[in-house]
Amino acid sequence: MSVTNIHQAKTNLSKLIEAAERGEEVIIARNGKPVAAIVPIAPPNLDEKDTPGKRIEDIWAGKLAGSDPEW
């Protein structure tokens, strides 16, 4: 766990986020008093059906009806 002041955090935000991605916790302080934390989060646990960008076969099967048979 590291502590940094607000000015340093603004200057080095991308490095602090990289530290959080590595599992480190970063405390941000104002005038030496902790006010916020950058912490790692667990990746979302997605089911195969909920995976973004993945095509799901037959998801609309039987759910749509067309009104124009020639379309």
Results as ranks from 00 to 15, higher is better:
I6G: 07
S2E: 10
Q8S: 08
A61C: 03
E21W: 03
A36G: 13
A65D: 13
L16R: 06
I38T: 04
S67M: 11
H7C: 02
E24Q: 05
I28N: 12
R55F: 04
I56E: 12
A36P: 11
N45C: 06
W60M: 14
P69W: 04
P69K: 13
E48Y: 08
P52Y: 07
L16S: 09
V35R: 07
A42G: 11
V3W: 01
P43F: 01
L46R: 13
P69I: 04
A9Y: 03
P52T: 15
D47C: 09
L64Y: 03
L16Y: 07
D68M: 04
K54A: 14
A42K: 15
N45H: 12
N5G: 05
I59T: 11
W71D: 15
R22A: 15
P69Y: 05
S2D: 09
D47K: 12
G53A: 08
A20L: 02
K33Q: 14
I27E: 06
A29S: 12
T51D: 12
K63L: 15
K49G: 12
E48M: 10
K49Y: 13
E70T: 09
G66M: 02
S14H: 12
P43N: 07
E70Y: 03
L46T: 06
E18R: 01
D47P: 04
I27V: 11
P34F: 01
T11R: 02
P34C: 09
N45A: 14
A9P: 04
S2Q: 08
P52E: 09
T51W: 05
D58E: 10
E21T: 09
A29W: 00
T11L: 07
A20I: 01
D50S: 11
N45E: 15
T11H: 04
A65P: 01
K33I: 14
E24R: 02
Q8F: 00
V39S: 15
I41M: 11
G62K: 01
N5W: 00
D47Y: 09
I6C: 02
D50K: 07
D50R: 05
I27W: 00
E48F: 05
W60G: 11
M1R: 05
I17Y: 00
G53T: 11
P40D: 12
V35I: 14
K33Y: 06
A36H: 10
P52G: 13
R30H: 12
I6N: 03
P40V: 03
S14G: 11
I41H: 03
I6F: 02
W71R: 09
N31F: 03
G62C: 13
I27Q: 01
V39C: 09
K49A: 15
A19Y: 01
P69H: 09
R55K: 05
E48G: 14
K10Y: 11
L16N: 09
A29Y: 00
A36Y: 06
I17F: 00
A29N: 08
I28D: 07
A65E: 14
A20K: 01
E57D: 13
D68P: 08
N5D: 15
K15R: 10
E70K: 07
A36C: 12
A61Y: 04
R22V: 02
V35E: 10
A19D: 15
R22S: 13
I56H: 06
P52K: 09
I6H: 03
W71N: 13
T51V: 10
P40H: 06
R30S: 15
R55V: 10
G62N: 07
N5Q: 03
S67T: 09
I56F: 00
